[in-house]
Design a protein around this nucleic acid. Structure first.
Lengths: 153, 153
DNA sequence: GGTCATGTGAAAGAATCTTGCATAAAAGCC
DNA sequence: GGCTTTTATGCAAGATTCTTTCACATGACC
């Protein structure tokens, strides 16, 4: 993965907020021609610097108004159990984000669910039936104050 | 905000993973003409159902390899203090996501920072100098197991 | 039945993306 | 220094995609 120069950074800064900006406009903003912008974007996509191009959907609009953050502590923390948990969480549709963390918990999950009962069902399925969860801590979001994947660079 | 039908849902399902899919291809996948797909996407953008169209940038690539999750508990929880905290967190470039939550904490932050010392500097600036933070709990991400804004619908 | 509102597809037009190519700057190498 | 190689650039043409127009179909409501 080759290093990014200031043009790449400037392009990323723009498209991480709006990836439908025409290449011509990006070019004007960063002082580059449209084809150059395009080649740089393609290169960064190929390198994985740009992980994905996505539309951000309002959770409420698709019937998932509840955002819930859960800290999960496992009983067994052997590599095999950790990996099994990762796979489980990754595969669960309710899980929007999942982090394997150091500190007082093993995992932090961010969920998008339809209701508290949907969350309860999730906890049964993912925490109790698996048999490897020691405890979990639930934090219900009242306000998604800041949301998205934009970075501060 | 008018309700979404099954076509809208099908379109969202596709573009929340790849918003550069040609309208023609989306149309073929959902059995609609390209102009129809386009009008639906426009409508959903205008209504806010589609909150944004963005490129997801790999944090490592732009010098922010550390993802840190912080739970923050405030001293004073008056509405004025809550709002002040929301503004502070929203404005901080390190803060990628911020949730105001019920439960054992007031806020959950997800940070993207360059290093542990950058994080320490952040805690000084945001937690100590503000004077309204009772305590905070730090969880450092070792693995972004699942990451993004895609929803499971 | 008639009217209105809404959504649709086909086709033309506009804008954007993509590629080929000649050139220029930078890097490596005698 | 002078040469070659590599890499990136802009221009312009071509291909693709997006956008608009328009006539038509469907269903709701009197």
């Amino acid at each position: 993965m080759t290093a990014l120069d200031s043009f790449d950074i400037a392009i990323l800064r723009l498209i991480q907020h709006d990836n439908r900006l025409p290449q011509r406009e990006i070019g004007e903003a960063v002082n580059l021609s449209a084809p150059s912008v395009q080649r740089r974007i393609r290169r960064m996509e190929a390198e994985g610097v740009i992980a994905a191009n996505v539309a951000q959907v309002l959770p409420e609009a698709v019937g998932l108004p509840l955002t819930i953050i859960v800290e999960v502590e496992l009983l067994s923390e052997t590599p095999a159990h950790i990996d099994a948990a990762k796979q489980r969480f990754r595969a669960a549709p309710e899980v929007q984000q999942c982090h394997y963390v150091t500190g007082e918990a093993d995992f932090v999950l961010i969920l998008a669910v339809a209701s508290m009962s949907a969350y309860e069902e999730f906890t049964r399925r993912m925490f109790f039936e698996s048999g490897n969860v020691k405890k979990f801590r639930t934090l219900v979001s009242m306000d998604r104050v800041k949301y998205g994947t934009a970075l501060g660079f």
